[in-house]
Nucleic acid binder design. Structure first.
Lengths: 209, 209
DNA sequence: AATGGCATCTTTACAGTGTAAAGATTATAC
DNA sequence: GTATAATCTTTACACTGTAAAGATGCCATT
């Protein structure tokens, strides 16, 4: 992109690692996961095709950092959504936030669940995943009337995995335009704002709240 | 694979279209979607790399046929699962069947929702998708007490998209091993047999049945 | 039966990809 | 000030999908 070429910046970049992450993230936002190539990311950072390997080992290494970035942003939103209202309201808000994140960052979102493109064991990824996870778990613990330190009971597990599955599936199906056939809402945002809460209300929250 | 080479079979294959579909489907079953390449499929069918283009136009053309194959198999199972029991039981059984299909054919399943790899407008695909869809819709209409010909009401839409989202998300998360952290069931099959019904029971069926 | 046309498959070629290996350059530590 | 390590480039290789053009065999028309 606006990154300097070798001639103007000298042999060493100085901040290549971050520059590559930014370039790759931009690329994902612009062209989606399928439009991403490591060479193009390097091109945008103004550096040779082989340069990224020294910082990330390879394509999965770079993508993993972006996935971690995604999980951190997701966690931030889930935490924010879990701050006000009754436990049931908070869980609902977190479900909406989950889908909203997917619609705001489709590239990141798809990447985050492509384990064939990621290094699962990478610390930064496991850490960020844990944050997002804990935000949901905390709310479910409140619903079950359990303390924050305790382990989820069986019903709590079912609720947690249930809300996650529903939000995750809804996000995927919306991004894939699979729902257009039934619910003929205009934009994806309309889907999220009206349809998704309707699902939660009709089939989840009434039981929990 | 066991397909004859040009020398032994003559210049014309005779049944290349089907042979390629079989080879590609096998490849997907063996190595998953990420292991698929058009050239490898051609190799297994014993033909040149450019041969598939004459029958399918290109890689997406071939993959679309396999996705259609997947939707037909899915529809078959959904219909079978929707034949006995109360409407609520049937919907639950269809949810389980949906996830079971995903675990039985991970390659096909992933492919079916990768619209970047498919030709959405292809008739064979739209047809097969419709079949799977109708099987679910029929059950929800029964739950709502509506006739089979009528359109789903708003609550019916929510139920339909809800069960689909939940099953779809659960399938994806299971295949991605994202649930191992909470529910430490052994195999994926255990997840499906015990955990998924628990979700449906706890949060869906009680309301509907 | 011969022949022309068409469908089918191969060959060749090209622009891409990710990344390994080795060379060039610069920063850093001693 | 010099050795060492870190950083980036160059070159090269084995892949990929597919476009273009040539080879082959089937089939219908005459």
């Amino acid at each position: 992109m606006n990154e300097k070429k070798t001639a103007e910046r000298g042999y060493h970049h100085g901040d290549l690692r971050d520059a590559l992450i930014r370039a790759a993230d931009d690329l994902l936002a612009e062209k989606g996961l399928e439009g991403f190539t490591l060479r193009e990311a390097a091109r945008r950072a103004g550096v040779s095709p082989a340069a990224p390997s020294h910082h990330f080992g390879g394509s999965p290494g770079l993508l993993t950092e972006i996935a971690a970035l995604g999980y951190r942003e997701l966690a931030r939103r889930l935490i924010a959504a879990g701050e006000i209202g009754s436990p049931a309201d908070r869980l609902k808000a977190q479900g909406v936030a989950y889908v909203r994140f997917a619609l705001d960052f489709p590239g990141r979102f798809h990447l985050m669940f492509r384990h064939d493109l990621l290094l699962r064991e990478q610390l930064s990824l496991e850490e960020a995943t844990g944050q997002a996870w804990d935000a949901l778990e905390k709310t479910v613990l409140a619903i079950r009337g359990q303390s924050e330190q305790s382990e989820l009971d069986a019903e709590g597990e079912a609720i947690l995995i249930g809300i996650w599955s529903t939000a995750h599936g809804f996000a995927h199906l919306t991004l894939d335009k699979k729902l257009a056939r039934i619910a003929d809402c205009g934009s994806d945002d309309d889907m999220l704002d009206s349809l998704f809460p309707a699902i939660i209300d009709a089939l989840w929250i009434k039981k929990l709240g």
